[in-house]
């Protein structure tokens, strides 16, 4: 899966999970947690979704919580 496709999949997942209107565009710099689009409890599901996209397990012990800030930071940290 190429970068554009992965970013699109991440945006789609966040929008669906948050219950945002699907017509609303999520910018790759939008602060997902700060703006309350996702909660900290959603992050577990997001980690599992990232694992399914990249095909390998994510070691959460080694993760800085800041990587969950935006689509950009997610892409840079996990792909």
């Amino acid at each position: 899966m190429d970068e554009l496709k992965i970013r699109a999949e991440l945006r789609r997942w966040v929008v669906e999970r948050s219950g945002m209107e699907k017509s609303r565009v999520l910018d790759d710099e939008t602060r997902i947690l700060e703006k309350g689009i996702l909660s900290s409890l959603d992050v577990v599901e997001l980690v599992l979704f990232i694992e399914s996209l990249r095909g390998s397990e994510v070691d959460t012990e080694e993760i800085d919580p800041d990587v969950f800030s935006s689509i950009n930071s997610l892409y840079k940290a996990f792909f």
Partner: peptide, 10 residues
């Protein structure tokens, strides 16, 4: 099996 929950301050 690993814990997937992360601690976020609030």
């Amino acid at each position: 099996y690993a814990e997937k929950k992360l601690a976020f301050g609030r």
